[in-house]
Design a protein around this nucleic acid. Structure first.
Lengths: 390, 390
DNA sequence: CGTCGGAAGTTATACGTAACACGTCGGGCT
DNA sequence: AGCCCGACGTGTTACGTATAACTTCCGACG
């Protein structure tokens, strides 16, 4: 061991070290650059490297050496070993996002927003698609263990997932069931669109659903609609409970309105069936179908046409969420735009605030009515149906 | 140190240890159960615990003690510290999935499939939505640095993402650009729907796109269509190149067919515009629009109707992918169903095979034509247009 | 009877990082 | 003059795990 080999780094990252497949599988990892390599190159101790790169060198390392350390780190292409750091600090800089299902465009966008701001702060996001509480709430053949194994969500416990030592959790209220399964110990937990009084949550981020509903019902009643059926998502979830309450409340203040409510499972077909029921049931036919999301609304539009009626001339249909779907169908859906990406961002910010110990009362995000072609004055329009600005 | 305190575990996980907020922030983590705790409880050494739980105790630990270890681990609720394990083994049991954008339903489903099989094998999946190569290929005002900072994908480098010491990578060919950015070193790399000769990939998993195209063109020509315009996705990607080639080849074998091709950016609006161009251009109007995905097809349907024409009586429209959208629009789209979840699963399996050193030539997955209402014989139907079974 | 060899364990070590505890050296304050 | 304190560092340790290396105990075999 010659003493001055200290200044020769083990191999700058200009790759292709030659031997292609000679890696004996017993070795821990490829020959990565460690903080000690950086220390040698910069002529300081490993501790100094840690201090400088951790930006904790206020009065501990001279500016000159700090500069040298940073230069050496960049030169060698140093990347800290996250496993070692986590082991040492007990923190992983990774949070879990619990969503009902990712194939829902809405939550894919929530993830996108959350991941973006997380990445900007050096955090990672792993997903836990719970896929519970979603889909039709079957009659649930209670306790018939004979049937095929009702394969539980194949990630039985988020903590069993790899990359799973977590710093915090963001969870949609639609996946709340998964939360009880995961013993969230005392992790900071941000709930999305959930009961603010839910004491499991460290913070809650909400969309102003009630206001969106008010805009929507205002739009319908201004057009002259008085017989309105609410196709309510058949999912036990705070956000849908709020929608139902807000619909009832807003319409109860308008004289002459007759509100009905029908449950509808999620999905185009379910929306179609529910709308069929609504349109063919007893009593006068509703002139507007207020659907709990755009997908149900798409199904409702199909039902209307199958009965030989037209949207919006005979029946107006409204959605919720403003998914890409909303402008793919014809007529384009009048809907309430939910800022999904912003929602994910806000959730992540609230979680980061909690992680930093900052008590940050999370905001309620505004939503916006988007009036399109699926709504119009009803055929039996009373005189108070006036298109504004027409 | 009394010697027999060895049998007292530090605190069975029946929580609420009392002091609510007394955690000094300097401490690494909450008082978790370690393998040493399990060892004490079972009356063995920590090494024995590691052997038993790692299932490497064949001739090293007696069955009785192994049983005791497992019992103690379960009793205490032991969960191995993944950071420590990774540090020791150099492996993270985490793979990266590089997709163009998650809001695409298709890739959300690919993720779902990949994550499911990964979870079944104790692996984790982190996402890298590259969001490059997607969207309209703008004229790209080359090198105009004056404009606003064209914010690069805010995850500049997948390896900078937390949870980022990776064991392998699965990447869609649509996100291939991101791959060059990530110096994938010598990580196993599985490419999805990519050129099998791409030498960057350890393995390649493909969908049998060409066969799907043959089914689709066969369907159209059997209906009697001879003037067909291919609305080709304006994205430089292997999978779309294959589609274009397969369309040309399949239709070149049918006498009398006149194929045109128009580029279309992704999205409903872009599809609408492209279809408008196709339908109003010079020469006889095409009787069928073969679109590279369902979303373009939805736009195309809108274009047809805006010109006062009907789908499918005047113009047939086909999609690709069979997204949820396909049955939300009217008429429902004839399309080629791509098994997205299976695709993700197959990719993950191929990667796991590579990780285990098993040379596993990855399969090509079959696809399936789904004929629905958006296709019909053309109005100027020649005699060879016969509905089968009609 | 010696010894070899496998079963059954244990001890010790290293992975790479963060941070505590400890030094040293000047200079300003009492 | 004595002393304390802040700047500037370094040595050392611990995080929890996996595994190589070592020890011991027997039974079997030459």
């Amino acid at each position: 061991m010659t003493s001055n080999e200290a200044t020769t780094p083990p191999g700058a990252r200009t790759g292709s070290t030659g031997a292609a497949d000679a890696a004996p599988p017993g070795r821990p990892a490829a020959d990565r650059v460690t903080s000690r390599d950086v220390a040698r190159a910069a002529g300081v101790s490993q501790a100094a490297v840690s201090l400088v790169l951790g930006d904790k060198w206020r009065g501990r390392v001279s500016p000159g050496k700090a500069q040298a350390v940073r230069a050496a780190a960049r030169e060698l292409g140093y990347r800290p070993n996250l496993a070692a750091r986590s082991l040492r600090t007990g923190r992983t800089r990774t949070v879990l996002l619990v969503v009902p299902a990712l194939t829902t465009e809405f939550f894919a966008r929530v993830y996108t927003g959350a991941a973006r701001v997380a990445a900007d702060h050096g955090l990672g996001v792993v997903l836990y698609p719970s896929s519970e509480g979603i889909g039709p709430s079957h009659p649930a053949p209670a306790t018939t263990p004979g049937a095929g194994p009702v394969r539980p969500p194949s990630v039985p416990d988020p903590f069993d997932s790899a990359a799973a030592t977590l710093d915090g959790v963001i969870a949609s209220s639609m996946a709340a069931e998964a939360l009880t399964a995961l013993r969230a110990a005392d992790l900071p937990l941000v709930m999305l669109d959930s009961d603010p009084d839910d004491d499991r949550a460290t913070a809650t981020v909400n969309l102003d659903i009630a206001d969106g509903v008010r805009q929507l019902t205002g739009h319908l009643t201004a057009l002259g609609h008085r017989r309105i059926t609410h196709l309510a998502a058949d999912v036990r979830s705070w956000t849908f409970e709020v929608r139902a309450r807000a619909v009832s409340e807003a319409l109860s203040r308008v004289p002459g309105v007759r509100l009905r409510r029908l449950p509808a499972a999620l999905g185009v077909d379910a929306g179609l069936r529910a709308a069929h029921t609504a349109l063919t049931g007893p009593g006068p036919r509703p002139t507007a179908l207020l659907c709990d999301d755009d997908i149900i609304a798409a199904g409702a539009c199909k039902a209307v046409r199958r009965l030989g009626l037209r949207v919006p001339e005979d029946v107006s249909v409204t959605g919720f969420d403003d998914l890409a779907l909303a402008v793919a169908v014809e007529p384009e859906l009048t809907t309430v735009r939910l800022p999904a990406e912003d929602f994910g961002e806000a959730g992540m910010r609230a979680l980061m605030a909690a992680l930093d110990g900052r008590p940050d009362r999370a905001p309620t995000l505004p939503v916006e009515l988007v009036a399109r072609g699926s709504t119009a004055p009803p055929a039996d329009a009373p005189e108070n149906a006036a298109r504004p600005g027409g």
